[in-house]
């Protein structure tokens, strides 16, 4: 076994390869990790170098989850530098507010209009930010707010909500649509690909 092969791919002209940075955030159990896996697959299949890294710690129990996806000619660090996300997809309102400072000036934000109040809010010391969307609007110019669950319900199945969000995300990235469709078809449970593709299109048009 040798390592020559793996080192050969290291690109020395790293200066001109600026990766695209996508941050996906939400609450443990919402599907952030699967969504970021699908985006990574799409980027990989599009011929990019891709790195994906998630921070969930003990968060599979309803805590904060964030996933960094970076793709481009060559990606070094798996983490997005602070304040350099090109796109943030937030699965929940308060989480959108928690992470908005990571958006670069002029970046796009997609916010799922869902409110998940953590149990800690039962303590009077903590208040859920009911004005999250208003605050976000003052800070972010390119922002899309959509109620993915409602759109999915309109399609007859609330479980399609995350695919709706991916549809909205796809409009912010310069990636071939056929690759998105291909990856979604492969990644979703058997027999649900038509419904998921429909949800994806709905998200694109939302």
């Amino acid at each position: 076994m040798t390592i020559e092969k793996s080192t050969k791919t290291k690109d020395k002209s790293s200066k001109n390869s600026v990766p695209v940075n996508v941050l996906i955030v939400g609450v443990g159990g919402q599907g952030v990790l699967l969504a970021s896996q699908i985006l990574s697959d799409v980027a990989l299949q599009s011929g990019f170098d891709v790195k994906k890294s998630e921070v969930h710690g003990m968060a599979q129990r309803g805590g904060v989850v964030s996933s960094h996806i970076r793709f481009g000619k060559k990606v070094y660090s798996p983490l997005i530098p602070n304040g350099k996300a090109d796109v943030i997809l937030a699965f929940e309102r308060a989480e959108a507010l928690r992470w908005v400072h990571e958006l670069k000036p002029g970046g796009s934000m997609i916010v799922n209009d869902q409110k998940l109040i953590p149990p800690i809010a039962a303590d009077k010391k903590y208040t859920y930010p009911d004005d999250a969307l208003t605050t976000l609007k003052t800070r972010v110019k390119k922002m899309q707010i959509l109620d993915a669950a409602k759109i999915a319900e309109g399609l007859g199945n609330t479980r399609l909500a995350n695919t709706v969000l991916l549809g909205a995300l796809s409009t912010t990235l310069d990636v071939d649509m056929s690759i998105w469709r291909d990856v979604i078809t492969r990644r979703v449970p058997k027999g649900t690909s038509d419904a998921n593709l429909k949800a994806f299109d709905k998200g694109r048009g939302a």
């Binding site: 609450v27 129990r61 805590g63 602070n82 989480e95 400072h101 809010a121």
Partner: peptide, 19 residues
């Protein structure tokens, strides 16, 4: 380099909890 100028908002914590 520029970027990261926006200050984080103080959002209530969301610690992991028992299911």
């Amino acid at each position: 380099s520029p970027g990261g100028e926006m200050k984080p908002f103080a959002v209530l914590p969301r610690p992991p909890v028992l299911c």
